[in-house]
Design a protein around this nucleic acid. Structure first.
Lengths: 231, 231
DNA sequence: GTCCCATGCGACCGGTCGGTCATATGACCG
DNA sequence: CGGTCATATGACCGACCGGTCGCATGGGAC
C-alpha cells in the first residue's frame, strides 16, 4: 500500500503520477516498465517516489487491486439486475466491451493479470486477480443455473466457467481489436474509441457472443454430466 | 536465422544451447530472459554465442518459427484426416492437449505468441505467429462449413474462428492446469505430465470442449448472418 | 616448419535498472 | 530567533543486461 505521504500529495501531482504509471504499465509488462521513466514523465524525482510507495511492486499492486478496480466500478456504475439471466449476461459482456473501448489503458491493466512473469510475487498477484475474476463469473453462472437458464449440473460448472471466461476475456478482446482493425498497442494511445465502435455495434457483438456461449452451455455441458471428479 | 557455424556445431554442444534456450524462454518472457544465463547454463561462453546467432532476437525468432514448430510437427506426426469434421476437430484438440502435457516447455513457447511486448520487433513476430495459428484454425473450420457440419455463413466465420481460438487456446490451457491442480510455472519444470493427465482424461476433456464449441457454432452463428460488414 | 583462417573465448563496454542516502527546504513551535 | 521534523531531491550505488573486441587455439595447405 502507498505511504500516507502519497495521499497527502497535492492532487495535481498525485494525478500526474498515477496517470503516467497507468500509461507505463499498460504499454509495458511489469519487468519492462521503468520507474525512472514514470518518474521523468510525471516530473517527479525518483527519490520522491520512494516517499510515496515502498517500491515498484507496491505501486503496481495498488494500481491493479485498488485504483483500476475503483475506476472500473465507477465506469460500470451499479447495474441493477434486470431481465432474465441471458439478458443480464449480455449486458455484462457489453459493458465489458464498452470499458475496453472507452478506457483501453485501464482495461489493459485489468487484462495484465493473464500475463506470465518470472517474478513470484507478480505471479501471485496476477493469479489472485485472475481467480477473483473467475469467481465473479462463476457466481453469475450459478445464478443462471438457479434460474434454470443453464442446464449444466454443478460438477461441471467450474469447467464451464473457465471456457466462458476465455471467450469473454481474450476471445472478445481479440474480436474487438479485429473490428477496430487495430493492434492493442495502437489502441492504448487513444483515450476513447467510441467513435469507432459505438453502442450499436458493441451490442451486436455482445449478442453474438452470448449466442455462442448459450449454445455451448446448452449442448456441451449435460453430455458430460456423468464424468467422475478427480480424487 | 542462425549463422552457418551454429549448424556445424558438435551435436551435443548445439543441443545444450537449444535446450537451455528453450527452458529460459519458456520460463521468462522475452525481455526477462537472459542470454548470459542461457550461456552459463549451456556452458557456452557468451562470445561464442554471437558466433552462432546474430543476437538475442535471432535466437528467439528461430526457436519460435523453426525449432519449436518442427518439434511440434514431429510430435503430432502426420494425422490422416479420418472421420467426420467434428471427430477431426476433437482429435486436433486432443493432440494439442497431449502436446501441452508431454512437452510443457515447447507448448509454452508456442503460447508465448500471445504475450504482450513493448518491443516492436517482438510484437510483430508474436503477431505473425498468432495470425498463422488463426489461419490454420479458419481453414479447418472452413472444411466444416464445406461438409455442412457448421451452418455458419461465410461472413461470420472470421468472428467464429476468433472465439473458437480463444476456447481451444487460453481456455483449454486454463482447464488443463485446473485438472492438473498446478500452475504453469510448476509444470514447466517437468518434462512430462502424462502420468497426471492420461489419454482417457484428455479425450474426455476434448470431447467436452468440442460439445461446447459445437453448440456455440450451431446456435450462435446463424442468428447474426444478416449483419452488415463495416465499410 | 610456417602461414592462414575459422572458431573459441572471457574480459570488458556503455547503458539502464531499482533502490538509497546525504543534504536541502520550509512550515510550525517555543 | 533557533530547533525540530516531515518531506523534497538528485547524485549515487551495485547489479545486470546485450553486445563487442582482441587475443588464443588448432587444424589443414604448402
Amino acid at each position: 500500500m502507498p505511504r500516507s505521504t502519497f495521499f497527502n500529495l497535492p492532487e495535481e501531482r498525485r494525478n500526474r503520477l498515477v496517470r503516467e504509471a497507468i500509461t507505463e504499465f499498460a504499454e509495458r509488462a511489469y519487468v519492462e516498465a521503468s520507474l525512472s521513466q514514470i518518474a521523468v514523465r510525471a516530473r517527479i524525482p525518483k527519490g520522491s517516489f520512494y516517499q510515496y510507495f515502498e517500491d515498484k511492486l507496491d505501486l503496481y499492486r495498488w494500481l491493479l487491486t485498488e485504483e483500476v478496480p475503483r475506476r472500473k466500478q465507477e465506469f460500470l456504475g451499479v447495474s441493477p439486475p434486470v431481465g432474465g439471466f441471458w439478458a443480464r449476461l449480455e449486458h455484462h459482456v457489453e459493458r465489458g466491451m464498452a470499458f475496453l473501448v472507452e478506457h483501453p489503458r485501464l482495461a489493459r491493466l485489468t487484462a495484465a493479470a493473464a500475463d506470465p512473469s518470472a517474478i513470484a510475487e507478480v505471479r501471485g498477484l496476477h493469479r489472485s486477480i485472475c481467480e477473483a475474476g473467475v469467481a465473479e463469473l462463476r457466481a453469475l453462472l450459478e445464478e443462471g443455473v438457479a434460474e434454470g437458464a443453464i442446464r449444466t449440473p454443478g460438477a461441471d460448472l467450474e469447467h464451464a466457467t473457465r471456457l466462458v471466461s476465455a471467450v469473454i476475456g481474450p476471445g472478445l478482446t481479440d474480436l474487438v481489436l479485429q473490428e477496430l482493425g487495430a493492434e492493442l498497442h495502437e489502441v492504448l494511445g487513444s483515450d476513447s474509441l467510441r467513435r469507432r465502435l459505438g453502442g450499436a455495434r458493441r451490442r451486436r457483438l455482445a449478442a453474438w457472443a452470448i449466442q455462442f456461449i448459450r449454445g455451448g452451455l446448452d449442448t456441451g455441458a449435460p453430455r458430460s454430466s456423468t464424468r467422475k471428479r478427480q480424487p
